[in-house]
Design a protein around this nucleic acid. Structure first.
Lengths: 247, 247
DNA sequence: GCTCATTTGTTCGTATGTATC
DNA sequence: TGATACATACGAACAAATGAG
């Protein structure tokens, strides 16, 4: 089929780039969904009438940009949150490198509309007067509150977010929910991590003594085209448990 | 010259990666300065006794990471610091998502041999009685001590590590040094993050009041075949600055 | 403006190694 | 163990940009 045209015709667009664009469009349009496996290299090569090296180049570029990820012996998959890398599930709490993980529950505290917040809007790269949604949640590990989290999302991007039932926000991680309902996969995140003494509001919510050391994490989640879509602040107690990160 | 050894010897490190590392070291160490032109592909291929495709791969990777830039017809050049992206393996300190990064210096505090430590050896997946090296360092950002770090490496894996001059440990990031001297590239890391009150020893080293909130990070670095090779504890002050992580 | 040597960019194809199931 | 799929390595040929003469 559609044999990629070659150079002779004065075509300045390289073959690998055409293939790359074609694949990216299939992803962006939703015909290929996160987790889907794309055809193997040799099949793509045959199908498009190009060499395997050219296919490799297109796929590797997309993998570098975060659209795809590859596993030797298994295949090439569409990135997105769910399967992208099991290691990137947001927070994993455990006592020790060799211990099993603690159990997670989410308690939904509220969702409301707010006006733009200067610091938040700048992080989200939107104008200062654009309105936001504010989501408050408590993460319980083994029934004990360990994280208080405050999320901000642009109202413009997530229309009618407040129509969903609160239960939806407790069932699954928020990024999965947003991906499903609004088709925005998470491509990468930025975090700022610091250690701070617990402020008064936090001591109440997390039930810790005033000025206990708290892990404070600010996060920006990005989707395609490096577009930020969520700004989040998390306050974590880390007495016995610690946060595991792999990269 | 220095013909890169090939696979037959059970060597798990790909040739292109060795070349890539070698070039990166020349850049990081300052032997190659921003703007310098590196030898053309065919010369590098001859010089190292590898194919031109392999050289291409090494160079393209470094170009993608921002270490080099290429101009068709002219050559390949060392990029200025602006372009460089060390998103992983490295701590980046800044005050805010929108602020520039602080300046880093490393102060080497000491390297000595120690007996095995149960917790450490378990993390490194070596027997309890295997001896270790212990490296103590202080990271200064804008001249102020911000991180105290304690590294453990198996003596068996890093023979004669204590023969190197202390200066070597201050010049380049430790993982680059180990990669060059022992041919162990870092494939991925695990971290445990928590927030703790400063213990007595730490208050002295980092010059903070007793029980200030400290970011405590335990890290295990893995090389090929998921083999752990370094266990590290870092104690970070995060008053004004925060740690940036991208993933 | 033209030619030529140099250097990178693209494309091809083949062979073998290695991870996964 | 075998089939599948990605990873590495080799090498060849030609296109396109650059800069010098």
């Amino acid at each position: 089929m559609g044999a990629m045209t070659n150079k002779k015709s004065g075509d300045p667009v390289p073959i690998y780039l055409k293939l790359q664009t074609k694949l990216m469009l299939e992803i962006e349009s939703g015909r290929l969904e996160p987790g889907d496996r794309i055809p193997p290299e040799n099949r793509l090569a045959d199908h498009h009438g190009v060499s395997i090296g050219t296919v490799k180049k297109a796929i590797l570029n997309l993998a570098n940009e975060g659209y795809l990820y590859r596993v030797q012996g298994k295949g090439t998959f569409v990135a997105g949150t769910t399967l992208r890398r099991e290691s990137l599930r947001y927070y994993r709490f455990l006592k020790d490198f060799n211990n099993p993980e603690a159990n997670l529950n989410i308690e939904f505290l509220g969702l409301k509309k707010t006006k733009g917040i200067e610091h938040v809007n700048r992080c989200l790269k939107i104008r200062h007067n654009q309105a936001l949604y504010e989501i408050k949640r408590l993460f319980l590990f083994n029934k004990k509150p360990l994280i208080y989290s405050l999320s901000y999302l642009p109202q413009k991007l997530f229309v009618k977010l407040d129509d969903f039932s609160p239960k939806q926000f407790e069932r699954v991680p928020i990024y999965l929910f947003l991906e499903e309902k609004y088709g925005l996969p998470t491509i990468y995140n930025q975090e700022l991590i610091s250690s701070v003494p617990a402020a008064h509001e936090i001591t109440q919510l997390l039930k810790v003594p005033e000025r206990s050391p708290i892990l404070f994490i600010e996060m920006i989640a990005f989707t395609y085209k490096k577009r930020p879509y969520e700004y989040r602040q998390s306050y974590c107690i880390t007495g016995n448990n610690k946060i595991l990160r792999e990269y």
